[in-house]
Design a protein around this nucleic acid. Structure first.
Lengths: 102, 102
DNA sequence: TAATATTACGCTATCCGTAAAGATG
DNA sequence: CATCTTTACGGATAGCGTAATATTA
């Protein structure tokens, strides 16, 4: 289970639309659809009701949302707690090059 | 970033050994080594000190461990909160409109 | 020497993007 | 009819396992 699924789920829930979330995340619409389907399959629960003009959270989706955001929050805290040790001022590697942690 | 990396990190930290963790998780030793390296690269921090007879947590690893376990805990809670809706097998639907199984 | 961790290499599976189809107001 | 979501398909990337190498008590 990739954490990106939670990012995508959060974006879709926030925007109420797959296409808007895709644009915001920099993914194509089908990629977002697949990620949502993948998460739904992993949790064995339908998270959105598909409507023509967008999507709406199901009750399971509404229960999931705060938990997903908690996970994302802890992940951000993780980066903050680790980084001080990661760069102790030594001339280690890249001087400014930062690869996306995905 | 797959959450499996946190499971593996937790197992290696708990067992103090890559091979023990691999056996416990059902992975090969190289797979666990790669997962740890991947996590270290993603966080840009060394998490273990490699010794001949095993591995020991660095200070960064010690700081990461509780956060990783928090993530895993929330993930478990997630399953518990979702499952009641996934297969309720009940009749009295409380207002929720459920589209017919496609 | 024995046990442990790491690196090399090939294969499989997963995932994304483009293109086409279905559904709804 | 216009917009949005979903499915199909092809290519690229990532991850695991087996095998081989290095290091240390």
């Amino acid at each position: 289970m990739d954490v990106q699924l939670f990012h995508t789920f959060d974006a879709v829930a926030t925007h109420g639309s797959v296409s808007k979330a895709a644009a915001a995340l920099g993914y194509s619409q089908p990629a977002v659809t697949h990620q949502v389907q993948r998460l739904e399959h992993l949790l064995r629960a339908r998270l959105f009701d598909r409507c023509a003009g967008g999507v709406t959270l199901t009750s399971a989706g509404e229960r999931l949302l705060p938990l997903a955001r908690t996970v994302l929050s802890v992940l951000g805290q993780m980066q903050a707690d680790i980084e001080p040790d990661a760069s102790p001022g030594k001339a280690g590697d890249s001087g400014g090059r930062r690869s996306p942690d995905r």
